[in-house]
Amino acid sequence: MKPAPFVHHAPRTVDEATAVLADVGHDGKVLAGGQSLIPLLNMRLASPGHLVDVNGVCGLSDIRVDGSGVRVGALVRHAELERDPRAYAALPLLRQALAHVAHPVIRNRGTTVGSIAHADAAGEMPAVLALTGGLVEAAAANGDREVAVADFFLGALETSLRPEELVVAVRFPLFPPGTGTAFAERARRHGDYALAGVAAAVTIVDGVVARARLSFVSVTDVPGTLDVTEEFAGLEPEAAHWRDCSDRVRAHVAPETDLHATAEYRAMLATELAWRTLAEAASNALTVAA
């Protein structure tokens, strides 16, 4: 299990990186944390001719928190974001979800941007980006652009990113005031890819539910959101029957059967986790408000 040969590029700037990407096109692959990519290389399930190692690129290592959200640079490791106190204060969901990303040792190396660009439906951070309605900042030699999350994920391991583009950062917008969030997932072993996972955000205004939304891990092709506000709007959180979202969840998810669980079981898990997560998010919203 050794990787096939490749040409290694070590750009120092975004411009250099995008120039190389423009040059190598489909034969190039960006290496940041490599925690998903290198296993594929070692197993020779992928053998790109060029590896654009962006670990030395300046200006991609920042976490910026402001009134609009949390901007995470392409070289920010999961563990750095997980530990960042300002990011946590602004958007607790980040830490809630990051705690479920593989094992701590993997989080020390893997990047949040990388896991979003990888677009694995079993990834936690794409679901978080979806729930926050985030943005992907892509740079390219022929011009930079911002891609809304809804336009970014196209399918399992498939995004609208072009081969010549480098994701330099993702932006997680803040939730409205009064929002609580929660994240839960179930895996066969601690740290494995989730059989099903759910992120929830519930906004409480004047003591009643104003908005309730969910996004999912491992049970949808594309990390999208499910808005269940209609089911709970105007209810006091304590009075809400959070299980009432179950039919909506069941209709929304489209899990597949694999080695570790059947589609039906995953749907059940997603449904079960959904109401529990909503309840927890609502409870957190009340704590935030208090």
Binding site: A10, G34, Q35, I38, D53, H103, N108, R109
Partner: peptide, 21 residues
């Protein structure tokens, strides 16, 4: 995890990193 080494003090998998990096 058998290949875990400390990289600037943080544990990482040495099988998931290239020497050049």
């Amino acid at each position: 995890g058998a290949c875990t080494v400390l990289v600037d003090g943080a544990p990482m998998r040495s099988c998931l990193m290239f020497a050049v990096t």
